[in-house]
Design a protein around this nucleic acid. Sequence first.
DNA 1: TTTT
DNA 2: TTTT
Lengths: 152, 152, 152, 152
Amino acid sequence: MRNCILVGNLGQDPEVRYTPAGAAVTTISVATTEAWNDKDGNKQERTEWHRVVFFRRLAEIAGEYLKKGSQVYIEGQLRTNKWQDKSGNDRYTTEIIANELQMLGGRPGSGGSMGGGGNMPSAPKAKNPSNNNNNSNDNGPNYDDFDDEIPF
Amino acid sequence: MRNCILVGNLGQDPEVRYTPAGAAVTTISVATTEAWNDKDGNKQERTEWHRVVFFRRLAEIAGEYLKKGSQVYIEGQLRTNKWQDKSGNDRYTTEIIANELQMLGGRPGSGGSMGGGGNMPSAPKAKNPSNNNNNSNDNGPNYDDFDDEIPF
Amino acid sequence: MRNCILVGNLGQDPEVRYTPAGAAVTTISVATTEAWNDKDGNKQERTEWHRVVFFRRLAEIAGEYLKKGSQVYIEGQLRTNKWQDKSGNDRYTTEIIANELQMLGGRPGSGGSMGGGGNMPSAPKAKNPSNNNNNSNDNGPNYDDFDDEIPF
Amino acid sequence: MRNCILVGNLGQDPEVRYTPAGAAVTTISVATTEAWNDKDGNKQERTEWHRVVFFRRLAEIAGEYLKKGSQVYIEGQLRTNKWQDKSGNDRYTTEIIANELQMLGGRPGSGGSMGGGGNMPSAPKAKNPSNNNNNSNDNGPNYDDFDDEIPF
DNA sequence: TTTT
DNA sequence: TTTT
């Protein structure tokens, strides 16, 4: 279950680490802000910080293309890790394990704090918008050839 | 983007078909009901019907375990198919292409309208709630061994 | 942003408390279980526990109708609270502040561990599937009378 | 149930209409694009178009701040309207009735195709990120004063 | 710690 | 019809 969704901005550059086996693990901190009017009609606002973790290829992409301030859309699942502090007390950290990442906003680069700047891997030119079956009948769509057109 | 979520009940038994290549395609109709109080304080209710399509293995599971009345949780993506009716007019049908299915509710069967009856493949007894790293330090969780424990 | 969704079961009966002003605050613990096959083809499973908080009327409903084992659908937002333990160390607890609750599964009661048993306020039988405008034209739906039919 | 989420771009400027009672109804068309690699390793892409409807105040905001090309985050619910074409045939149109709108991307304007250009109503400066209870105990957060800080 |  |  892809149970959480975030739309927000990175508070810092991503942290990329690697497992002994060489797989990337990237952690980011994402702020989501919510505004509402309180009972006195005053504007209130609250910012929430979320720890988000990426693994493997998504970790590499996140490490390469995101930076402090980037606006992102993230889907993932909640996970609470249990660990122990120096005193041996149980501690818990809740994270979102990301399984989808979409970079938002227009071409931001052009002078970020990082070197390379840059944008998302440029989703390939979009062209075949047609899932038009264009079959002529009255029974609705068929799916005879879905193997060629569906991404799962 | 897994952009839609439904929690509802099947209006009929699933329809299972097969592509020439032998892949299953299952279609179900799911009712979601929403209740609210109108401005006069009267209870209002509205039922919405959704056409949901499954492919391949998920289609086989849906065809085997769901039946009329089943309560389901579905994640999927919207897709609008274009087709033509007998008169050659363009028609559109919007569906949810499911990528996740969870059967809800307790053991329903015990006398359904279908033969086999039955429930979901019995989610294996759930037992190891631990994603406890139990590493003792003050740096929060590590991920050295995530290959062994994470489902992607 | 209603950013998280849970479908799971309560690990214990709800805890209901009241603020000095008399508003209900209900906390539940919800288990979600995820199953997958690891690289050796063995079935793996993992259960995640989520702390969910309800306020006001939703808190009253949750306290009255949910119990240990109840299957629920919850929408809410993540919130991380900062507090301090006895030693004055900062501690963080992440919760889901619920803004929607739907009880899942058929009439469970009939022998639960609690006294009263009971189900959700019985979503009024769902019947009028029609948001059919039934206006005859070729321009698609109109909305002239939406005030009478839309729940916001 | 806020069951659908879209992140995409407007294909055209919004269409704003008004009910006889004076309430705004705004319709937009949103493209979402998905990319994947097919079985031959070729990049595939598919664009889906979604009809989104806003009512009342949200309709006014959408009409004022969105324009062709705007990137948006939308939450809403699916609704299928039934209507009849000139020949009296039943036709169906599926829409997303929006209940949340967030404009994405940085300062876009600076030369859009429309006159006014413009951005979102500038969410008020964000400042009080604290939902820190800072109560010193070992029982986790309390909620005594939630009336002052929670937006429902 | 971000952004609007 | 958009955008990447």
